[in-house]
Simulated assay, not measured.
Amino acid sequence: MEIDHQKGSSQKVMDELTQTKTLFDQVNELIHKHIEEASKVDTKLEKTNKQIETYGS
């Protein structure tokens, strides 16, 4: 009986760890997408700044 309880508890912990890993994987993917998008914005801002500097010269 005790072994069955421990087995059930272990399975519950493993399921929770799997769910946690899935959540962290999703968060990691969102962070990487955000960084990629921010990089695109930085590039556009840099080009705009150069155009403004050229225009002002």
Rank of each mutant, 00 (worst) to 15 (best):
K50Q: 13
M14N: 12
Q11S: 14
V41A: 08
S9P: 00
T48L: 14
E16Y: 07
A38M: 10
T43C: 02
I35N: 02
K44T: 04
T22N: 12
Q11F: 06
K47C: 11
H5G: 03
S9G: 06
H32V: 07
K21R: 10
V13G: 01
H5A: 12
E36M: 04
H32Y: 08
F24T: 03
N28I: 03
Q11M: 12
I35D: 04
T20S: 10
L23N: 06
I31Q: 02
K47E: 14
Q6V: 12
T48K: 11
T54D: 11
H34W: 03
N28M: 07
Q6E: 11
V13L: 12
V41T: 10
M1K: 07
Q26V: 00
M14L: 15
G56R: 15
L45H: 03
D42A: 11
D25Y: 04
K47P: 01
D15F: 14
L45R: 02
I31E: 02
T22A: 13
Q11D: 15
M1I: 13
D15C: 09
Y55N: 09
S9D: 14
V41Q: 11
S10T: 14
S57H: 10
H5M: 06
D4S: 09
T54R: 13
K40F: 01
Y55C: 05
E2D: 11
D25M: 05
T43F: 03
Y55K: 13
S39K: 12
Q6P: 01
L17Y: 02
Q51Y: 13
T48Y: 05
L17A: 07
H32C: 01
K50N: 07
T22Y: 01
E46L: 08
K44P: 00
I3Y: 09
L30I: 04
T54W: 15
A38R: 04
E16V: 02
K50M: 08
L23D: 04
D25A: 06
I52E: 00
I52R: 03
V27W: 00
K44H: 12
N28R: 08
L45F: 02
T20G: 01
K33T: 03
N28G: 06
V13Q: 11
N49A: 09
T48P: 00
A38F: 08
K7C: 03
K21A: 09
H5K: 13
E53R: 13
E46G: 01
N49T: 02
M14W: 10
S57F: 02
L23G: 01
D4W: 05
D15K: 15
E29H: 10
E29N: 10
H32L: 04
V27P: 00
T20V: 05
I31D: 01
S9R: 15
E46K: 09
K21M: 12
D4H: 05
E29M: 07
E29K: 12
T48V: 14
S39L: 06
E46I: 01
T48H: 07
T54Y: 15
H34I: 03
I52T: 09
Y55A: 12
T43V: 06
M1L: 06
E16A: 12
